[in-house]
Each structure stands twice: as C-alpha cells, then as structure tokens.
Design a protein around this nucleic acid. Structure first.
Length: 126
RNA sequence: CCAGUCGGCCGGGCGACCGCUGCUUCUCAAGAGCAGAGGAAAGUCCGGGCUCCACACGGACACGGCGCCGGAUAACGUCCGGCGGGGGCGACCCCAGGGAAAGCGCCACAGAAAGGAAACCGCCUCUCGCCUUCCUCACGGAAAGCUUGAGGUAAGGGUGAAAGGGUGCGGUAAGAGCGCACCGCGUCGGCGGCAACGUCGGCGGCAUGGCAAGCCCCGCCGGGAGCAAGACCGAAUAGGAACGACGCGCGGCUCGCAAGGGUGCGCGGGGCCUGUCCAUGGGCCUGGUCGUUCGGGUAGGUUGCUUGAGGCGUCCGGCGACGGGCGUCCCAGAGGAAUGGUCGCCGCGCCGGACACUUGUGUCCGGCCUUACAGAACCCGGCUUAUAGGCCGACUGGUAAU
RNA sequence: GCGCCCGUAGCUCAACUGGAUAGAGUAUCGGUCUUCGAAACCGAGGGUUGGAGGUUCGAACCCUUCCGGGCGCG
C-alpha cells in the first residue's frame, strides 16, 4: 500500500486529549470523534490521532481488541484525508468490537470529513 | 452400561496478503531471517530473589503473623507422608487440630441452680399438731391422710445448646462411685513408633462443663521500603555547597598598655533520624549579606530488563513432596504500553429444517460464534478466584453377560 | 506499586461490642378527614443484613474468601 506516505502522529498527553475534546464532536454507532485545531506553534506537523477506550467499555481483552481494530482502521485511512493542523480523538463505544471492519473504516473516514466543517451543519451541506 | 471419586492434560489447526515490537545480519538506508501473552498473565492473600535505606553487638517490651507430628523447600500460611477427630455403603472427602488444674471475662431467655455447687416440685426418716378408721371398758396402741419443724437425698419431673461422667446390676429409709462390671476420664508403668500417637496392665474413684476465629499463656517467625527500587547522562528556573570579603550567643587561643583587632578552634543551645526502653549513646544538620566557582537533583533520555531456585528428555535415590547426575534448548520484553486486520479450508460447539430409525442417535443442508475465563509490565515459588467444550489414566458402588 | 475504609427496607441512618420479633424517619399502598387535594391521624406491605463458607448453643457483629464502591500516598 502507501507505506511511503505520511503517517499519523499520536497523542499521548492528557492535556492534548483535553484540548481535542473542546472541538467538534461527531457521533457514530461505534465511536465518537473529537477534532480540534492545534495551537499555532505546533501547526503543520501532520494530523495526529488519539484513542480513548474507557473501562466502562469492557475488560482488558475487550478494550485491547477495540483499540487494535480502531488503529488498524486508521492505518487504512490516509492522513492526506485529514488536516495537518488538527488533532483527532476517537472515543470507542462497545459497537466498535462487533461492527464489520469495512463499515468501521467508512464511518471513520466520513466522520473525519464532517469534522472539517466549521459549524454544525445548519447550512444544508452535511 | 449407569452412577460416582481422585489425578493429569488440551483449551482451536493450516495457509495467503497487509501491518506492529524486539533481536540478528548489514558501513548506513532499504531489504531479509528468527521470535512474539496465560493456565490462570487476574485478585494482590502469603513466601522469597534483587535494589536502596536504617542499624556497634545484644537483650527486654510492644506490634503483627503462624500453631497436631515428621519431612520437602531458598522460604512459606504451600506441598508430601503420617496421627487424631468427623462424614460417606465405598473409592474417598473435610478439620485455624497447642494450652481452659496461670489468670481475667462471657454463657442471653428459660430454669431451683450456669460452675469451688445449690435444692423448686418430688422421694425418705424423725417430729409438733389435727382428723378418720380399727383394736381396747378405759388408759393406750396400730394404720392412712393433712400439717409444723429438723434432717437425708439427687433416682425421677421440668428448663436449657450445655445440669458436676454414661449404661446395667447390687445396695439403701430414700438415694448417691456407696460397691461392682463395661465404656469414658485422669494418672503411673511396660511395649511399638524419630514423633504426634497407639496398645497392654495397674491404680485412682469423678476431681477437670463450654468458649482462646474473647483477652490471654506457651512455642516459633518477622528491621523498613519497594523497579515510580536503584544506577548513569543531564535543560530552564529556584534553591544548595565551597572559597573570599563584611562580620559573631558564649568560651578559648593570640596581638595589643588600653580601646580594639585576628583566628571559625571548642562549647552550650536547637532540630532531625534509628518503633520504644535498657542507654549512657550513635549518626547528621545548624547565623546572615555580597561576589566567584562547583557539584547534586527536577523535565527528558539510557540502564535495571530478562539465563532463571529456567524448560524438555533420560537415568538414579525416595512411599511421596522432592533431590541428584547426564544430555539438550534459549523460550515475549512493551513503555499511554507491540503480540494485530481482512480472508480461504478444516475441526469443535449452538440454533433451525429435512430424512432414516427403537427413546435417542446418525446423515445432509442453512445460519451463528469462528469459541469459555481472560491480556505480560522486575523476576520466581505458592494460595485463592473465573473458565464453553473436550481428552487420558487410576479407582469405587451397582446392573447385565461370560 | 503500596496502604486504608465502607456495604443493613426504594432512599437516609440505628441495633446497647455475640442474645433471638433486625428498628426509626422518609417514600409506597389502604383507610379516616375534605367538595377534591395537601397536611394531620390510623394501619399495612416491603430485608438471602453484598455473596459463599467456617467458629459458636446462637453471627448484622468474630474469622477466611470472593464481589461491588470509595479514599489516600508515591
């Protein structure tokens, strides 16, 4: 595949997750996507992604499996589809364990596309 | 074949493509090769290794844990083999199982009495009095009942979880270990056993109720913290130390006739640490301002980090836990945390349908799950808990056939 | 990685440190009162004491283990 292409950066710090949570929020059956632009000095370092799987979702094997499915799905989506100055956070729901993998990839790609509209879709082009 | 007991094991397999982490090869890059979750990785309930800190040796106290005996082990609260008690027809299973004649405490309600015995209803003897019947002419006497007082008794009734050995016979006014037999208990001795204990005999003659997962006593064990331990490298900012200058709570030394100066040399005092004490102690720190220099630590990085009380095979010793010899292998090392994603075939299971046939099983088709419990975080030994389904071995009780 | 605490009616709390029917308030239901409701009064139901096992004659209480929740330190 496009192994030479740009790669997703990763969010690791708690503050980065909290900043992303202040941005747009798109829900889907398997997850909730949060996206927000970074601070100016960190601009244009490529898009970054963070995963959140809470303990409410399930026990450790369940959480691991969800995290791995989401990470593999993100690998299928080119970072070129995202904005280089944005951070994205995927908060998993329990459906992320059972949803068909192709549908999961499509949902995430669609959610990333919707996250770039500046305001919640009041103008008709959802 | 049915029912059951015990022990051990597996807990999906093969393949394709695309990925992740580590190691090796390689001058680098790229590429290639190899490896990559568990029996519980879990809970964190115990025991260790390892690391740092503390401690002169030690003793006592306090606190915590453990508790039949012997063994295994680095150690254990684990395991093995016994003993004792309890359960089961049996294979077998369960037991925190030291001490209650060191002391304190508790034993509600009920009951007379709940712990150095006592005596409610009773039973028995004697006795004051009353009354009835009988004998007698009468005095008086006999028997039965009620009753006063004194005494004996614990068999029976009744309460309770538990009533100061149990059962039986004798004995007695009635009774009682009062006597005897057996059982139980205690004690002494013999024998067997390393021991727990067992067994036999003698003696005692009931003394020693239960609770120590109540306090406690006895014996044994335990210094504290934990890989975010610890080691190395090491920004910014703040703080620290050394040196120099200015300088001082007291004392000392020294210069000076004196005023005063020099010297941080000593001490008091204060603070902190070692659980407390014996205990005196021991260790460390201790004034301010300015200047110069230095090193420690924080963020971050590297390391600790996987070769270990290691796995497998085999032989020997041991009833066994286990130990020893030899051979062979290297078998996850992440770091907000890799071990994955999508498929194909097979296997297992579940659900539905059809057919065959004796309940039930077999065959075929379709669908679901591609499986239960569950994810390494320094490493081992255990314990406990969770676990769909399946396999193997030994044994017990039935049933049938031979 | 350590350490500590708590679980009792739907909810908030008791139960004298082992003693018998686990008790209050509130909520729920029924009745009285009222034209109706509220308040008040009367009555009723509601508990595997988080689960399991053990010690004891007897356990909410003691012990072991599991489950759930909360807190503190690094």
């Amino acid at each position: 595949m496009d192994a030479q292409g740009p790669r997703w950066g990763r969010l690791t710090q708690r503050a980065e997750f909290q900043r992303a949570a202040k941005g747009r929020r798109i829900g889907a059956s398997a997850f909730t996507l949060q996206a927000n632009a970074r601070a100016t000095e960190m601009r244009a370092q490529g898009p970054r992604i963070g995963l959140t799987v809470t303990k409410k979702t399930g026990n450790s094997p369940v959480r691991n499996r969800i995290r791995r499915r989401l990470r593999e799905a993100m690998r299928r989506i080119s970072p070129r589809a995202a904005r280089a100055d944005f951070d994205y956070v995927l908060m998993a729901r329990r459906d992320a364990l059972t949803l068909a993998f192709d549908a999961l990839v499509a949902d995430i790609a669609a959610a990333i596309g919707r996250a770039h509209t500046p305001r919640p879709a009041r103008d008709g082009r959802s």
